[in-house]
Amino acid sequence: MGAPKTRERTCPACDVPVYPGEDFCEACGHRLGATVAACTACGATAISADGYCDHCGLRQPAGGDHVEIDARAAAGVSDRGLRHSRNEDAMALTDAGEGVAAVVCDGVSSSSRPEDASRTAADTGAAALAELLAAGTAPKAATRTALTRAAEAVAALAGDDGPHAAAAEPPSCTYVSALTHDGSVTVGWVGDSRAYWLSAGGGARLTDDDSWAGEMVAAGVLSEAEAQAHPNAHVITAWLGADADEPDPHVTTFTPDGPGVVLVCSDGLWNYLPEPAELASAVPDAVSEPLTAARSLTRLALDAGGRDNITVVVIPFSSPVHPTLEQAE
């Protein structure tokens, strides 16, 4: 064995040597990140380029572990939670026509690369909604088409895996979108991520889960509480992915009769707070402070155990006549 020598750092993107004090790689321009990141578990300052501590081996929190979007017209928070090693949820927010479009997706943990599935679906769906609304497509048709495009994009992710991928399920995720327009909101979904209407009067759930529990309740076999307590409660019956059936999007339009917010979320939130009235009373100022509301709901889920990834998007809806959204840039 040769004498130990000073470790030479190389650019994680192009492998050219880089030196202390450089923020970007001289060769390819890749941002080199903090030079003295410390391990969140043992405090060692040697973290490998692939994100594991050189001392204790712990994988360091990734960029997606806690994400916030503050678009004034709407806000969203996505958090890894306390019991999962990474955040497999994704959200996207965009202006669409005169309103706002939000998409939330929850990667299916048992599939391969669920985080890629949810990211792809959310981005594809939101971009499609903006594009279709700009082209004058009607909200319901746009919602359906956007969901179909997201499904195709997720299905196309299959086959990018390595030689051992055959045994794994292809990347897959849930999908829910909400689109505000002309004093109404149109939602579309596949899976068990949800949309709610929250108002001073309580509110309403706008979606019906594609899940074992949802089917039991719909069939009148079990009560909502009985179904959710069953071990199969979270088995979803529809999803986006190469192994899914042709997507059969549920699309519905809701017209509120007063001010309130549209809440779009993954099961990491609604597992703890399933009832619209509970959610509404937890964030009474959501109409004026959407980001604060999204943070508060995320915090409630974390405090309750944070067993799953949590994603919360809040879209204020002040009145059918003067939507807040006109203030958006």
């Binding site: 490998s48 594991y52 081996g57 712990l58 994988r59 890894r80 306390l82 019991r83 999962h84 090693s85």
Partner: peptide, 15 residues
Amino acid sequence: EVSPGNVGQELRAAW
């Protein structure tokens, strides 16, 4: 053989 971690943590057990 690794020291037990918390649920949700991921470790590089060997490189």
